[in-house]
Amino acid sequence: MAKAKVGKKTTGIAMELPECPVCFETMSAPIFQCQSGHSLCNSCTSNLCPPICPICRQAMTQMRNLTLEDVIAKANVPCPNKSLGCVYTMLTQEVDDHLKECIFRVMTCPLGAVFGKCSWTGNLKEMMDHFKDRHPQHCNINMETGVELNNVSINEDERFLYLAQQGNLLFIVTMKIDTLQKVAYWVVQHIGSKKSAQQHIYEVHITSKQDPRRQVIFIDHCYNDILSADAVYRLGKCGILPLDMFSHFIHNKKCSFKFVIKKGTPKPKKFDKSNTSNENKQPNAPKHPKPKAGFTQRNKSPGPAKHHNVGSKK
């Protein structure tokens, strides 16, 4: 039987979770009972034909064992992907949410999910190798020169997707031109847990092909891959550039951008009041050394001494 562990921040119950007498798997809600009180898991109850309890041969009912469901819900259980390497334990009721972002889950190709042209499935460790083998143009990114895009037009919908690696972590970089909303989007998402994603920020640097002095930089924290890129676009928490402005960054249907991924959280820039205060303040009187005994200190000229503001050129 699976053993539940007491959690540090939860009221987890130390106990052996009961197994279904039919499938011998750990019980999970909803749990139904027969007329004699024997409990079966929901899937096994649904598969019984006729609906007769395999233990006492009494008819199954629609009565749920709420007490047992409550005990199981408060117990800490390991991730179902434990055999694949996941070390997380959680409340039973949190398992479904964890499985959505567990890095040991079976994943689909991000390109296939967006464009529907790839049916690959596998684990996270195999994803980059899959891209290098099947989609090399979507992962061979030079972080120094950035991404070069061709056949770009503000009058046509387009989407670009790349897989980037930072250490042992993978990130999905997506750029979209939306002629309906009349904007271009950029977003970087971490493949992994929400907590891990929030520990990373990304910068997108867009430099004009018409004038390299024209540049836009977006800075934001990463979302994880549970949300689709379109969902992040709708939230507006990503890089957004109006298409009429974006047109000044395109030349001969070409544009480029670079991205940087860092660990940390974006910090707001503090307003430096020193320059403002120096501009508003009147120049202070010069500080002359105290005269020594027996000497009289005089200015060389009868007029006031000339002073310079802080930071001004002499």
Rank of each mutant, 00 (worst) to 15 (best):
T92A: 11
G112R: 02
K132S: 10
C102N: 09
H98I: 07
E101T: 06
L91D: 10
M107A: 06
D97A: 14
C109Q: 03
K100N: 13
G116D: 06
E101C: 06
F131E: 04
I103K: 05
M127I: 05
E126D: 15
T108M: 12
V95P: 01
M90L: 02
Q93A: 09
G116M: 11
T92R: 11
C109N: 12
Y88S: 10
H130I: 02
Q93Y: 03
E126C: 10
F131K: 05
E126Y: 12
P110Q: 10
P110K: 09
F104Y: 07
C102T: 12
E126S: 14
P110S: 06
H98D: 04
V106F: 07
D97F: 10
T108G: 14
D96Q: 12
V95G: 04
V95Y: 02
K132C: 09
N123Q: 11
V114L: 11
S119A: 15
E101D: 05
L111T: 05
G112H: 01
L124A: 05
G122Y: 11
E94H: 15
L124G: 02
L99D: 00
A113I: 09
C118W: 09
L99R: 10
A113N: 13
M90G: 00
G112P: 02
M107L: 15
D97V: 11
V106K: 15
K117L: 13
W120Y: 03
T108W: 04
D97K: 15
M90I: 00
L124E: 14
G112D: 02
Q93N: 11
L99F: 00
D129S: 13
I103D: 01
V95S: 03
T89A: 05
L99I: 12
L91K: 15
S119W: 09
F104D: 00
F131I: 05
F131H: 01
D97G: 09
F115C: 01
N123I: 08
F131S: 03
V95C: 03
K117S: 14
M107Q: 10
I103C: 03
C109M: 06
K125D: 13
K100E: 15
K132F: 04
M127Y: 05
D97L: 15
V106A: 12
